[in-house]
């Protein structure tokens, strides 16, 4: 068993020497091989899809943990209890007015005039920055 392994290793080394990339010598060749074989069996499919954090968390949620376990998803900060202040989108000053059409906040007449002249992509940029963009409205 071990002999065959050695033979394989030798052949691997020779092929590696042919190529100009004998790079990471510290890596376990078996692991690399396994990874490659995983890839070659389904060459047309994309390589291994890693679970996103969301998927990982929903997977963890479905596990019957003991009652007092603390998870990643259980320490999310609470929603704010303070009313959010209104800041002008243009000048960032605290303000009281909202332009009815674009829903942009503005501080004074000058800014109002400016808003009326703003192209829609800038308006949408301001709105989406503070998460107020509603494309259906």
């Amino acid at each position: 068993m071990s002999q065959t392994n050695q033979v394989q290793d030798d052949s691997n080394q020779t092929t590696i020497e042919d190529k100009p990339v004998p790079r990471f010598i510290f890596k376990n060749p078996d692991y690399e091989q396994r990874k490659l074989s995983r890839r070659s069996t389904s060459s047309n499919l994309p390589t291994k899809q890693w679970k996103s954090l969301k998927q990982i968390l929903s997977y963890e949620k479905n596990i019957p943990w003991p009652e007092d376990t603390v998870h990643y998803s259980s320490v999310v900060a609470p929603p704010t209890f303070k009313p959010s202040l209104k800041y002008s989108d243009i000048s960032r000053f605290e303000c009281n007015y909202t332009e009815p059409q674009t829903k942009l906040h503005y501080y004074d007449v000058e800014e109002y005039r400016l808003i009326r002249r703003l192209p829609s992509d800038i308006v949408n940029g301001y709105l989406s920055l503070r998460g107020a963009l509603n494309p259906l409205a």
């Binding site: 999310v76 929603p79 704010t80 800041y87 000053f93």
Partner: peptide
């Protein structure tokens, strides 16, 4: 104002449309 409005979102996440409480809160 941008000099301080930029980092202020840490304390007022509503600036970025987040409903979460800020650092101090």
């Amino acid at each position: 104002v941008e000099r301080m409005a930029g980092p202020e979102c840490l304390f007022q996440p509503s600036m970025l449309g987040s409903v979460q409480a800020g650092v101090s809160e």
